[in-house]
Design a protein around this nucleic acid. Structure first.
Length: 534
RNA sequence: GCCCCCGUAGCUCAGUGGAUAGAGCGUCGGUUUCCUAAACCGUGCGUCGCAGGUUCGAUUCCUGCCGGGGGCGCCA
Protein backbone atom coordinates (compact mmCIF):
# COMPACT_ATOMS: atom_id res chain seq x y z
CA UNK A 1 0.00 0.00 0.00
CA UNK A 2 1.24 3.42 -0.96
CA UNK A 3 0.90 4.86 2.53
CA UNK A 4 3.17 2.23 3.99
CA UNK A 5 5.69 2.69 1.23
CA UNK A 6 5.82 6.43 1.79
CA UNK A 7 5.98 6.06 5.55
CA UNK A 8 8.85 3.65 5.24
CA UNK A 9 10.73 5.90 2.86
CA UNK A 10 10.29 8.92 5.12
CA UNK A 11 11.32 6.97 8.19
CA UNK A 12 14.48 5.76 6.48
CA UNK A 13 15.34 9.21 5.27
CA UNK A 14 14.84 10.67 8.73
CA UNK A 15 17.07 8.13 10.37
CA UNK A 16 19.75 8.80 7.76
CA UNK A 17 19.48 12.43 8.85
CA UNK A 18 20.02 11.44 12.45
CA UNK A 19 16.39 11.41 13.59
CA UNK A 20 15.99 8.07 15.31
CA UNK A 21 13.59 7.13 16.69
CA UNK A 22 11.07 8.97 14.58
CA UNK A 23 8.55 10.82 16.78
CA UNK A 24 5.25 8.95 16.88
CA UNK A 25 3.45 12.17 15.97
CA UNK A 26 4.92 11.80 12.48
CA UNK A 27 2.25 10.98 9.98
CA UNK A 28 1.89 10.44 6.28
CA UNK A 29 -1.59 11.59 5.42
CA UNK A 30 -3.96 12.91 2.82
CA UNK A 31 -3.89 16.69 2.81
CA UNK A 32 -7.22 18.40 3.06
CA UNK A 33 -6.59 20.39 -0.10
CA UNK A 34 -5.73 19.05 -3.52
CA UNK A 35 -3.15 21.76 -4.07
CA UNK A 36 -1.12 20.22 -1.30
CA UNK A 37 -0.49 17.10 -3.25
CA UNK A 38 -1.76 13.56 -3.01
CA UNK A 39 0.02 12.71 0.19
CA UNK A 40 1.92 14.79 2.67
CA UNK A 41 3.97 14.43 5.81
CA UNK A 42 4.62 16.57 8.85
CA UNK A 43 7.91 14.72 9.38
CA UNK A 44 10.11 17.80 9.32
CA UNK A 45 7.77 19.70 11.64
CA UNK A 46 7.75 17.07 14.34
CA UNK A 47 11.42 16.14 14.02
CA UNK A 48 12.99 19.55 13.86
CA UNK A 49 13.80 19.64 17.55
CA UNK A 50 15.47 16.23 17.54
CA UNK A 51 17.38 17.14 14.40
CA UNK A 52 18.42 20.53 15.74
CA UNK A 53 17.40 22.28 12.54
CA UNK A 54 14.52 24.47 11.61
CA UNK A 55 11.61 22.64 9.96
CA UNK A 56 11.98 24.00 6.45
CA UNK A 57 15.70 23.30 6.41
CA UNK A 58 15.07 19.75 7.58
CA UNK A 59 12.33 19.37 5.00
CA UNK A 60 14.79 20.38 2.30
CA UNK A 61 17.25 17.69 3.37
CA UNK A 62 14.45 15.19 3.65
CA UNK A 63 13.35 15.85 0.10
CA UNK A 64 16.93 15.59 -1.19
CA UNK A 65 17.24 12.27 0.51
CA UNK A 66 13.95 10.97 -0.81
CA UNK A 67 14.89 11.97 -4.32
CA UNK A 68 17.33 9.09 -4.83
CA UNK A 69 15.56 6.90 -5.46
CA UNK A 70 12.07 8.30 -5.32
CA UNK A 71 9.35 6.20 -3.72
CA UNK A 72 7.01 4.52 -6.22
CA UNK A 73 4.58 6.71 -8.17
CA UNK A 74 6.09 9.91 -6.76
CA UNK A 75 6.39 12.55 -9.47
CA UNK A 76 7.30 15.54 -7.38
CA UNK A 77 7.90 16.65 -3.84
CA UNK A 78 7.35 20.12 -2.51
CA UNK A 79 8.08 21.91 0.70
CA UNK A 80 5.15 23.99 1.81
CA UNK A 81 3.98 26.17 4.63
CA UNK A 82 5.90 25.79 7.87
CA UNK A 83 7.68 22.66 6.62
CA UNK A 84 5.25 20.13 5.23
CA UNK A 85 6.57 17.83 2.55
CA UNK A 86 3.96 17.24 -0.10
CA UNK A 87 4.09 14.34 -2.51
CA UNK A 88 2.59 14.64 -5.94
CA UNK A 89 1.89 11.21 -7.38
CA UNK A 90 1.29 9.97 -10.88
CA UNK A 91 -2.30 8.74 -11.41
CA UNK A 92 -0.82 5.26 -11.71
CA UNK A 93 -1.04 4.93 -7.95
CA UNK A 94 -4.80 5.25 -8.23
CA UNK A 95 -4.96 2.73 -11.03
CA UNK A 96 -3.18 0.33 -8.69
CA UNK A 97 -5.87 1.02 -6.10
CA UNK A 98 -8.54 0.01 -8.59
CA UNK A 99 -6.72 -3.22 -9.36
CA UNK A 100 -6.58 -4.00 -5.67
CA UNK A 101 -10.26 -3.20 -5.19
CA UNK A 102 -11.53 -5.38 -8.00
CA UNK A 103 -9.11 -8.23 -7.37
CA UNK A 104 -9.98 -8.44 -3.71
CA UNK A 105 -13.67 -7.70 -4.21
CA UNK A 106 -16.24 -6.81 -1.62
CA UNK A 107 -15.22 -9.72 0.57
CA UNK A 108 -11.56 -8.86 0.95
CA UNK A 109 -10.91 -5.27 -0.03
CA UNK A 110 -10.22 -3.41 3.21
CA UNK A 111 -10.27 -6.36 5.50
CA UNK A 112 -8.04 -5.26 8.34
CA UNK A 113 -6.45 -7.14 11.16
CA UNK A 114 -6.55 -4.62 13.98
CA UNK A 115 -8.28 -7.06 16.30
CA UNK A 116 -6.05 -10.06 15.61
CA UNK A 117 -8.94 -12.39 16.28
CA UNK A 118 -9.79 -10.93 19.66
CA UNK A 119 -13.30 -11.75 20.81
CA UNK A 120 -15.52 -8.82 21.75
CA UNK A 121 -18.80 -8.99 23.56
CA UNK A 122 -21.03 -6.08 22.59
CA UNK A 123 -24.16 -5.54 24.63
CA UNK A 124 -26.73 -3.08 23.38
CA UNK A 125 -30.41 -2.14 23.41
CA UNK A 126 -31.21 -4.33 26.46
CA UNK A 127 -34.50 -2.51 26.89
CA UNK A 128 -36.79 -3.62 29.68
CA UNK A 129 -39.25 -6.22 28.35
CA UNK A 130 -42.26 -4.21 29.43
CA UNK A 131 -43.45 -2.95 26.09
CA UNK A 132 -42.38 -2.04 22.59
CA UNK A 133 -39.00 -0.44 22.06
CA UNK A 134 -39.27 3.26 21.47
CA UNK A 135 -37.68 5.05 18.59
CA UNK A 136 -34.72 6.10 20.71
CA UNK A 137 -33.80 2.45 21.25
CA UNK A 138 -33.37 2.08 17.51
CA UNK A 139 -30.29 4.23 17.75
CA UNK A 140 -28.54 1.73 20.03
CA UNK A 141 -29.64 -1.09 17.76
CA UNK A 142 -28.29 0.47 14.60
CA UNK A 143 -25.13 1.62 16.33
CA UNK A 144 -24.35 -1.64 18.12
CA UNK A 145 -25.01 -3.83 15.13
CA UNK A 146 -22.93 -1.67 12.81
CA UNK A 147 -20.12 -1.38 15.33
CA UNK A 148 -20.02 -5.17 15.40
CA UNK A 149 -19.86 -5.27 11.59
CA UNK A 150 -17.07 -2.71 11.55
CA UNK A 151 -15.08 -4.56 14.19
CA UNK A 152 -15.61 -7.87 12.44
CA UNK A 153 -14.14 -6.45 9.25
CA UNK A 154 -11.20 -5.23 11.30
CA UNK A 155 -10.29 -8.66 12.59
CA UNK A 156 -12.25 -8.79 15.81
CA UNK A 157 -14.71 -11.53 16.57
CA UNK A 158 -17.79 -9.77 17.92
CA UNK A 159 -20.59 -11.39 19.85
CA UNK A 160 -23.78 -9.34 20.06
CA UNK A 161 -25.83 -9.60 23.15
CA UNK A 162 -29.17 -8.39 24.51
CA UNK A 163 -29.67 -8.50 28.28
CA UNK A 164 -33.22 -9.11 29.40
CA UNK A 165 -34.23 -7.57 32.71
CA UNK A 166 -37.03 -10.09 33.11
CA UNK A 167 -37.16 -9.86 36.86
CA UNK A 168 -38.09 -7.35 39.49
CA UNK A 169 -40.63 -4.68 40.18
CA UNK A 170 -41.09 -3.31 36.67
CA UNK A 171 -41.99 -6.67 35.19
CA UNK A 172 -44.46 -7.29 38.00
CA UNK A 173 -46.11 -3.92 37.44
CA UNK A 174 -46.19 -4.62 33.75
CA UNK A 175 -47.91 -7.97 34.33
CA UNK A 176 -50.41 -6.38 36.71
CA UNK A 177 -51.17 -3.69 34.15
CA UNK A 178 -51.88 -6.30 31.49
CA UNK A 179 -54.09 -8.25 33.82
CA UNK A 180 -55.98 -5.18 34.97
CA UNK A 181 -56.68 -4.16 31.37
CA UNK A 182 -57.83 -7.63 30.54
CA UNK A 183 -60.32 -7.37 33.36
CA UNK A 184 -61.38 -3.95 32.19
CA UNK A 185 -59.77 -2.22 35.16
CA UNK A 186 -57.30 0.63 35.48
CA UNK A 187 -53.62 -0.28 35.82
CA UNK A 188 -52.14 -0.06 39.33
CA UNK A 189 -50.32 3.00 40.63
CA UNK A 190 -47.03 3.36 38.81
CA UNK A 191 -48.22 0.82 36.27
CA UNK A 192 -48.22 0.98 32.51
CA UNK A 193 -50.94 2.89 30.72
CA UNK A 194 -50.00 2.85 27.05
CA UNK A 195 -52.39 1.88 24.32
CA UNK A 196 -50.27 -1.18 23.62
CA UNK A 197 -51.26 -2.54 27.04
CA UNK A 198 -54.86 -2.74 25.92
CA UNK A 199 -53.95 -4.35 22.62
CA UNK A 200 -51.67 -6.88 24.21
CA UNK A 201 -54.08 -7.63 27.05
CA UNK A 202 -56.66 -8.52 24.43
CA UNK A 203 -54.22 -10.96 22.83
CA UNK A 204 -53.35 -12.65 26.09
CA UNK A 205 -54.71 -16.21 26.21
CA UNK A 206 -56.82 -17.39 29.12
CA UNK A 207 -54.87 -18.73 32.02
CA UNK A 208 -51.57 -17.20 30.88
CA UNK A 209 -49.23 -15.87 33.53
CA UNK A 210 -49.38 -12.17 32.70
CA UNK A 211 -45.78 -11.46 33.68
CA UNK A 212 -44.24 -14.34 31.77
CA UNK A 213 -46.55 -13.87 28.81
CA UNK A 214 -45.96 -10.12 28.74
CA UNK A 215 -42.20 -10.53 28.77
CA UNK A 216 -42.35 -12.99 25.89
CA UNK A 217 -44.66 -10.67 24.01
CA UNK A 218 -42.25 -7.78 24.48
CA UNK A 219 -39.26 -9.81 23.40
CA UNK A 220 -40.97 -11.15 20.32
CA UNK A 221 -41.87 -7.60 19.42
CA UNK A 222 -38.34 -6.34 19.99
CA UNK A 223 -36.77 -9.17 18.05
CA UNK A 224 -39.09 -8.74 15.12
CA UNK A 225 -38.74 -5.00 14.76
CA UNK A 226 -34.98 -5.03 15.25
CA UNK A 227 -34.61 -7.76 12.66
CA UNK A 228 -36.59 -5.68 10.22
CA UNK A 229 -33.81 -3.12 10.61
CA UNK A 230 -31.21 -5.83 10.12
CA UNK A 231 -30.22 -5.73 13.78
CA UNK A 232 -29.64 -9.18 15.21
CA UNK A 233 -28.21 -10.70 18.38
CA UNK A 234 -26.15 -13.80 19.04
CA UNK A 235 -27.32 -14.16 22.60
CA UNK A 236 -30.39 -13.04 24.53
CA UNK A 237 -29.44 -13.33 28.19
CA UNK A 238 -32.11 -13.63 30.82
CA UNK A 239 -31.53 -12.02 34.18
CA UNK A 240 -34.10 -14.33 35.70
CA UNK A 241 -32.30 -17.45 34.47
CA UNK A 242 -29.05 -16.07 35.77
CA UNK A 243 -30.49 -15.36 39.18
CA UNK A 244 -32.23 -18.70 39.37
CA UNK A 245 -28.91 -20.40 38.81
CA UNK A 246 -27.76 -18.79 42.05
CA UNK A 247 -24.67 -17.07 40.71
CA UNK A 248 -25.07 -14.07 42.97
CA UNK A 249 -23.79 -15.95 45.98
CA UNK A 250 -20.72 -16.98 43.98
CA UNK A 251 -20.09 -13.44 42.87
CA UNK A 252 -20.48 -12.19 46.40
CA UNK A 253 -17.92 -14.73 47.58
CA UNK A 254 -15.49 -13.72 44.91
CA UNK A 255 -15.96 -10.06 45.72
CA UNK A 256 -15.39 -10.74 49.41
CA UNK A 257 -12.04 -12.26 48.53
CA UNK A 258 -11.02 -8.87 47.17
CA UNK A 259 -11.30 -7.46 50.69
CA UNK A 260 -13.47 -4.62 49.39
CA UNK A 261 -16.77 -5.84 50.80
CA UNK A 262 -18.03 -4.59 54.13
CA UNK A 263 -21.19 -4.44 56.25
CA UNK A 264 -22.86 -1.18 57.24
CA UNK A 265 -26.37 -0.34 58.43
CA UNK A 266 -27.34 -3.97 57.96
CA UNK A 267 -26.44 -3.91 54.27
CA UNK A 268 -23.49 -5.36 52.37
CA UNK A 269 -21.41 -2.83 50.46
CA UNK A 270 -18.71 -2.88 47.82
CA UNK A 271 -15.96 -0.30 48.18
CA UNK A 272 -16.23 0.90 44.56
CA UNK A 273 -14.66 4.20 45.59
CA UNK A 274 -11.39 2.23 45.63
CA UNK A 275 -11.55 2.34 41.84
CA UNK A 276 -12.82 5.83 41.25
CA UNK A 277 -16.56 5.62 41.87
CA UNK A 278 -18.15 8.53 43.73
CA UNK A 279 -19.83 6.40 46.37
CA UNK A 280 -19.64 2.85 47.60
CA UNK A 281 -22.51 0.68 46.38
CA UNK A 282 -24.85 -1.73 48.06
CA UNK A 283 -24.72 -5.37 47.01
CA UNK A 284 -27.22 -6.81 49.49
CA UNK A 285 -29.96 -4.64 50.92
CA UNK A 286 -30.69 -4.62 54.64
CA UNK A 287 -33.82 -6.63 53.93
CA UNK A 288 -31.62 -9.40 52.59
CA UNK A 289 -32.43 -8.97 48.89
CA UNK A 290 -29.75 -8.36 46.34
CA UNK A 291 -29.75 -5.01 44.60
CA UNK A 292 -29.86 -5.03 40.79
CA UNK A 293 -26.12 -4.38 40.93
CA UNK A 294 -25.13 -7.83 42.13
CA UNK A 295 -26.77 -9.89 39.38
CA UNK A 296 -25.43 -7.33 36.93
CA UNK A 297 -21.91 -8.02 38.10
CA UNK A 298 -22.60 -11.72 37.73
CA UNK A 299 -23.88 -11.10 34.24
CA UNK A 300 -20.79 -9.17 33.23
CA UNK A 301 -18.60 -11.90 34.62
CA UNK A 302 -20.59 -14.37 32.58
CA UNK A 303 -20.08 -12.29 29.46
CA UNK A 304 -16.34 -12.83 29.70
CA UNK A 305 -17.14 -16.38 28.58
CA UNK A 306 -18.24 -14.81 25.31
CA UNK A 307 -15.61 -12.13 24.85
CA UNK A 308 -12.17 -11.07 26.00
CA UNK A 309 -13.27 -7.48 25.66
CA UNK A 310 -16.63 -6.30 26.96
CA UNK A 311 -18.38 -3.31 25.42
CA UNK A 312 -21.56 -1.95 26.99
CA UNK A 313 -23.56 0.53 24.97
CA UNK A 314 -25.69 2.56 27.35
CA UNK A 315 -27.98 5.53 27.07
CA UNK A 316 -26.70 8.68 28.70
CA UNK A 317 -29.23 8.21 31.49
CA UNK A 318 -27.14 5.28 32.67
CA UNK A 319 -23.73 6.85 32.47
CA UNK A 320 -23.45 6.96 36.25
CA UNK A 321 -23.52 3.19 36.18
CA UNK A 322 -20.20 2.83 34.38
CA UNK A 323 -17.81 3.64 37.27
CA UNK A 324 -19.38 1.12 39.64
CA UNK A 325 -19.31 -1.72 37.13
CA UNK A 326 -15.76 -0.85 36.17
CA UNK A 327 -14.85 -0.90 39.85
CA UNK A 328 -16.58 -4.22 40.46
CA UNK A 329 -14.82 -5.88 37.56
CA UNK A 330 -11.48 -4.57 38.69
CA UNK A 331 -12.18 -5.86 42.18
CA UNK A 332 -12.68 -9.24 40.54
CA UNK A 333 -9.28 -8.96 38.93
CA UNK A 334 -10.36 -8.15 35.40
CA UNK A 335 -7.91 -5.96 33.49
CA UNK A 336 -8.89 -2.32 33.31
CA UNK A 337 -8.91 -2.25 29.52
CA UNK A 338 -11.13 -5.31 29.19
CA UNK A 339 -14.28 -3.32 29.90
CA UNK A 340 -15.48 -0.44 27.82
CA UNK A 341 -18.61 1.65 28.16
CA UNK A 342 -19.97 3.67 25.30
CA UNK A 343 -22.47 6.32 26.31
CA UNK A 344 -24.99 7.14 23.62
CA UNK A 345 -26.77 10.47 23.64
CA UNK A 346 -30.51 10.59 23.28
CA UNK A 347 -32.69 10.87 20.24
CA UNK A 348 -35.15 13.71 20.09
CA UNK A 349 -38.08 13.14 17.80
CA UNK A 350 -39.74 15.98 16.02
CA UNK A 351 -43.02 15.76 14.19
CA UNK A 352 -44.95 18.65 12.66
CA UNK A 353 -42.23 20.95 13.95
CA UNK A 354 -42.78 19.90 17.53
CA UNK A 355 -40.81 17.68 19.81
CA UNK A 356 -42.53 14.39 20.65
CA UNK A 357 -42.03 13.71 24.34
CA UNK A 358 -41.86 10.08 25.21
CA UNK A 359 -42.73 8.17 28.32
CA UNK A 360 -43.33 4.44 28.25
CA UNK A 361 -45.50 4.38 31.32
CA UNK A 362 -47.65 7.29 30.26
CA UNK A 363 -47.94 5.54 26.94
CA UNK A 364 -47.20 8.33 24.49
CA UNK A 365 -44.19 6.71 22.94
CA UNK A 366 -43.14 6.60 19.35
CA UNK A 367 -42.18 3.02 18.75
CA UNK A 368 -39.35 2.01 16.47
CA UNK A 369 -42.06 0.12 14.68
CA UNK A 370 -43.93 3.34 13.96
CA UNK A 371 -40.80 4.90 12.59
CA UNK A 372 -39.83 1.88 10.50
CA UNK A 373 -43.38 1.51 9.18
CA UNK A 374 -43.45 5.15 8.23
CA UNK A 375 -40.06 5.63 6.61
CA UNK A 376 -38.78 2.11 5.95
CA UNK A 377 -35.94 0.19 7.57
CA UNK A 378 -33.15 1.54 5.38
CA UNK A 379 -34.09 5.16 5.95
CA UNK A 380 -34.40 4.62 9.68
CA UNK A 381 -31.14 2.76 10.02
CA UNK A 382 -29.19 5.17 7.85
CA UNK A 383 -30.63 8.12 9.74
CA UNK A 384 -29.53 6.66 13.06
CA UNK A 385 -26.03 6.19 11.71
CA UNK A 386 -25.73 9.62 10.19
CA UNK A 387 -24.06 11.15 13.18
CA UNK A 388 -21.78 10.51 16.10
CA UNK A 389 -23.20 8.56 19.04
CA UNK A 390 -21.76 11.33 21.25
CA UNK A 391 -24.11 13.90 19.80
CA UNK A 392 -27.71 14.27 20.77
CA UNK A 393 -29.72 13.44 17.68
CA UNK A 394 -32.79 15.13 16.31
CA UNK A 395 -34.88 13.05 13.94
CA UNK A 396 -37.55 14.97 12.13
CA UNK A 397 -40.09 12.34 11.13
CA UNK A 398 -41.65 14.59 8.53
CA UNK A 399 -38.30 15.14 6.85
CA UNK A 400 -37.49 11.44 6.90
CA UNK A 401 -40.81 10.43 5.41
CA UNK A 402 -42.40 13.20 3.36
CA UNK A 403 -39.12 14.18 1.79
CA UNK A 404 -38.01 10.61 1.49
CA UNK A 405 -36.78 11.14 -2.03
CA UNK A 406 -34.19 13.61 -0.82
CA UNK A 407 -33.05 11.36 1.96
CA UNK A 408 -29.31 10.68 1.91
CA UNK A 409 -29.81 6.93 1.96
CA UNK A 410 -31.50 7.06 -1.44
CA UNK A 411 -28.69 9.15 -2.79
CA UNK A 412 -26.29 6.35 -1.93
CA UNK A 413 -28.56 3.53 -3.04
CA UNK A 414 -29.28 5.32 -6.28
CA UNK A 415 -25.58 5.25 -7.12
CA UNK A 416 -25.66 1.49 -6.71
CA UNK A 417 -28.80 1.20 -8.84
CA UNK A 418 -27.16 3.22 -11.58
CA UNK A 419 -24.17 0.91 -11.64
CA UNK A 420 -26.39 -2.12 -12.00
CA UNK A 421 -28.39 -0.50 -14.69
CA UNK A 422 -25.14 0.24 -16.47
CA UNK A 423 -24.37 -3.47 -16.36
CA UNK A 424 -27.74 -4.35 -17.79
CA UNK A 425 -27.41 -1.77 -20.51
CA UNK A 426 -23.98 -3.15 -21.39
CA UNK A 427 -25.50 -6.60 -21.89
CA UNK A 428 -28.23 -5.10 -24.04
CA UNK A 429 -25.66 -3.40 -26.20
CA UNK A 430 -23.52 -6.51 -26.42
CA UNK A 431 -20.61 -4.93 -24.53
CA UNK A 432 -18.56 -7.40 -22.53
CA UNK A 433 -16.12 -6.53 -19.85
CA UNK A 434 -12.69 -7.87 -20.73
CA UNK A 435 -10.45 -9.42 -18.09
CA UNK A 436 -8.81 -6.72 -16.00
CA UNK A 437 -5.27 -7.52 -17.13
CA UNK A 438 -6.28 -6.79 -20.71
CA UNK A 439 -7.58 -3.35 -19.84
CA UNK A 440 -5.54 -0.18 -19.94
CA UNK A 441 -6.48 1.59 -16.72
CA UNK A 442 -4.17 4.47 -17.52
CA UNK A 443 -7.01 5.70 -19.71
CA UNK A 444 -8.64 6.82 -16.48
CA UNK A 445 -7.35 10.36 -16.25
CA UNK A 446 -10.50 12.50 -16.11
CA UNK A 447 -10.75 14.47 -12.88
CA UNK A 448 -14.05 12.73 -12.09
CA UNK A 449 -12.45 9.36 -12.52
CA UNK A 450 -9.51 10.25 -10.35
CA UNK A 451 -11.79 11.67 -7.66
CA UNK A 452 -13.72 8.44 -7.54
CA UNK A 453 -10.51 6.45 -7.25
CA UNK A 454 -9.23 8.72 -4.51
CA UNK A 455 -12.41 8.21 -2.56
CA UNK A 456 -12.08 4.44 -2.88
CA UNK A 457 -8.49 4.61 -1.74
CA UNK A 458 -9.63 6.26 1.48
CA UNK A 459 -11.65 3.34 2.77
CA UNK A 460 -8.86 1.55 4.68
CA UNK A 461 -8.06 4.67 6.67
CA UNK A 462 -11.72 5.42 7.29
CA UNK A 463 -12.49 1.90 8.43
CA UNK A 464 -9.56 1.89 10.81
CA UNK A 465 -10.75 5.16 12.34
CA UNK A 466 -14.33 3.95 12.53
CA UNK A 467 -13.16 0.87 14.40
CA UNK A 468 -10.70 2.50 16.77
CA UNK A 469 -13.03 5.37 17.57
CA UNK A 470 -16.04 3.02 17.77
CA UNK A 471 -17.60 5.36 15.25
CA UNK A 472 -19.57 3.60 12.51
CA UNK A 473 -20.97 6.95 11.39
CA UNK A 474 -17.60 7.61 9.76
CA UNK A 475 -18.55 4.87 7.30
CA UNK A 476 -21.79 6.72 6.60
CA UNK A 477 -19.88 9.88 5.80
CA UNK A 478 -17.50 8.00 3.54
CA UNK A 479 -20.16 6.10 1.62
CA UNK A 480 -22.09 9.32 0.99
CA UNK A 481 -18.96 10.87 -0.44
CA UNK A 482 -18.32 7.78 -2.52
CA UNK A 483 -21.82 8.07 -3.95
CA UNK A 484 -21.23 11.74 -4.67
CA UNK A 485 -18.02 11.06 -6.57
CA UNK A 486 -19.76 8.29 -8.50
CA UNK A 487 -22.68 10.52 -9.49
CA UNK A 488 -20.23 13.12 -10.70
CA UNK A 489 -18.36 10.54 -12.74
CA UNK A 490 -21.60 9.11 -14.13
CA UNK A 491 -22.71 12.52 -15.22
CA UNK A 492 -19.52 13.61 -16.93
CA UNK A 493 -17.97 10.36 -18.10
CA UNK A 494 -20.22 8.36 -20.39
CA UNK A 495 -19.41 4.68 -20.43
CA UNK A 496 -21.55 2.99 -23.04
CA UNK A 497 -22.29 5.86 -25.35
CA UNK A 498 -21.34 5.16 -28.91
CA UNK A 499 -18.74 7.92 -29.04
CA UNK A 500 -16.64 6.40 -26.27
CA UNK A 501 -13.58 4.53 -27.45
CA UNK A 502 -13.64 0.85 -26.58
CA UNK A 503 -10.44 1.03 -24.49
CA UNK A 504 -11.80 3.88 -22.41
CA UNK A 505 -15.13 2.12 -22.16
CA UNK A 506 -13.43 -0.94 -20.70
CA UNK A 507 -11.53 1.09 -18.15
CA UNK A 508 -14.70 2.89 -17.12
CA UNK A 509 -16.63 -0.33 -16.76
CA UNK A 510 -14.02 -1.53 -14.32
CA UNK A 511 -14.10 1.76 -12.50
CA UNK A 512 -17.86 1.39 -12.08
CA UNK A 513 -17.26 -2.10 -10.75
CA UNK A 514 -14.80 -0.67 -8.24
CA UNK A 515 -17.42 1.83 -7.12
CA UNK A 516 -19.97 -0.94 -6.81
CA UNK A 517 -17.63 -2.86 -4.53
CA UNK A 518 -17.03 0.21 -2.39
CA UNK A 519 -20.75 0.88 -2.05
CA UNK A 520 -21.42 -2.74 -1.24
CA UNK A 521 -18.83 -2.77 1.52
CA UNK A 522 -19.99 0.52 2.99
CA UNK A 523 -23.69 -0.28 2.91
CA UNK A 524 -23.07 -3.72 4.36
CA UNK A 525 -21.16 -2.23 7.28
CA UNK A 526 -24.14 0.04 7.88
CA UNK A 527 -26.61 -2.81 7.56
CA UNK A 528 -28.44 -1.02 4.77
CA UNK A 529 -29.55 -2.76 1.59
CA UNK A 530 -28.03 -2.10 -1.82
CA UNK A 531 -30.98 -2.37 -4.23
CA UNK A 532 -30.14 -3.00 -7.86
CA UNK A 533 -32.92 -0.86 -9.17
CA UNK A 534 -34.94 2.01 -7.86
C1' G B 1 -23.41 21.16 44.38
C1' C B 2 -20.93 16.93 41.73
C1' C B 3 -20.50 13.71 37.09
C1' C B 4 -21.14 12.63 31.49
C1' C B 5 -22.25 14.59 26.49
C1' C B 6 -23.17 18.65 23.24
C1' G B 7 -22.58 24.08 21.62
C1' U B 8 -19.36 24.69 13.92
C1' A B 9 -23.40 28.26 7.79
C1' G B 10 -30.83 29.94 8.19
C1' C B 11 -31.86 24.30 9.66
C1' U B 12 -29.77 19.11 10.52
C1' C B 13 -24.90 17.75 11.19
C1' A B 14 -19.54 16.13 9.56
C1' G B 15 -14.48 17.50 10.60
C1' U B 16 -10.52 17.88 14.95
C1' G B 17 -3.15 19.51 16.79
C1' G B 18 -1.65 21.71 11.17
C1' A B 19 -1.51 24.97 5.61
C1' U B 20 -7.79 29.40 2.57
C1' A B 21 -13.27 25.07 8.20
C1' G B 22 -17.04 21.12 4.94
C1' A B 23 -21.75 18.27 3.43
C1' G B 24 -27.00 17.71 3.06
C1' C B 25 -31.45 20.47 3.32
C1' G B 26 -33.44 25.32 2.29
C1' U B 27 -32.81 29.94 -1.41
C1' C B 28 -31.89 31.65 -6.31
C1' G B 29 -30.22 30.32 -11.24
C1' G B 30 -28.54 26.76 -14.89
C1' U B 31 -27.73 21.40 -17.23
C1' U B 32 -30.91 15.94 -20.66
C1' U B 33 -30.94 14.09 -29.46
C1' C B 34 -27.84 6.97 -26.81
C1' C B 35 -25.71 4.50 -19.95
C1' U B 36 -32.05 5.84 -14.32
C1' A B 37 -32.57 14.22 -13.64
C1' A B 38 -33.95 9.94 -6.83
C1' A B 39 -28.45 13.09 -10.83
C1' C B 40 -24.97 17.19 -12.08
C1' C B 41 -23.13 22.51 -11.96
C1' G B 42 -23.11 27.45 -9.92
C1' U B 43 -24.91 30.46 -5.63
C1' G B 44 -22.83 30.84 1.68
C1' C B 45 -18.63 38.15 4.42
C1' G B 46 -19.44 31.11 9.78
C1' U B 47 -16.21 35.97 16.08
C1' C B 48 -15.99 27.00 14.91
C1' G B 49 -20.49 29.53 22.64
C1' C B 50 -17.03 33.20 25.69
C1' A B 51 -12.22 34.05 28.20
C1' G B 52 -7.47 32.51 29.48
C1' G B 53 -3.44 28.72 28.92
C1' U B 54 -0.11 24.82 26.45
C1' U B 55 2.17 24.61 21.32
C1' C B 56 6.29 26.54 15.86
C1' G B 57 0.83 26.04 15.01
C1' A B 58 -5.71 25.26 18.63
C1' U B 59 -12.27 25.01 15.99
C1' U B 60 -9.42 20.49 17.74
C1' C B 61 -5.68 19.64 23.97
C1' C B 62 -6.05 21.98 29.37
C1' U B 63 -8.66 25.39 32.93
C1' G B 64 -12.69 28.62 34.06
C1' C B 65 -17.35 30.62 32.65
C1' C B 66 -22.13 30.77 29.78
C1' G B 67 -26.10 27.94 27.23
C1' G B 68 -28.68 23.00 26.14
C1' G B 69 -29.52 17.59 27.23
C1' G B 70 -28.86 13.57 30.74
C1' G B 71 -27.46 11.54 35.52
C1' C B 72 -26.42 11.75 40.73
C1' G B 73 -31.65 6.10 45.91
C1' C B 74 -30.47 -0.14 50.19
C1' C B 75 -34.99 1.92 41.87
C1' A B 76 -33.44 -0.72 37.30
Amino acid sequence: MIKDQLTEAVTEALSALGVDPVPDTMVVERPARREHGDWSTNAALVSSKAAGRNPRELARELVDHLDTPRPPHVEAMEIAGPGFVNFRLAPTWLHDVLVEVVEKGEGDFTRLNLGRGKTVNIEFVSANPTGPIHAGGGRWGAYGDSLARVMARCGYRPHKEFYINDRGRQTVLFGQSLEARRNGEEPPDGGYAGAYIEEWAAEMPDGADPVAWGIERSLADARQVLESMNVTFDTWSSERALVESGVEADVLDRLKQSGLVYERDGATWLRTTEFGDNDDRVLVKSDGDYTYFTPDIAYHLDKYNRGELLIDILGSDHHGYAPRMRAALRALGKPEDSYEVIIGQFVRLVRHGQEVKMSKRAGNIVEIRDLVDEVGPDVARFAYLLQSIDSPQTLDIDVLSAEAAENPVYYVQYANARIHSLGEEAVKRGVERLPLDQVDLSRLDHERELELLRQLSLLPEVLELACNDRAPHKITTWVRELAATFHGFYRDCPVLRSDVEPELQQARLWLAEGARIGLAIGLDLLGVSAPESM
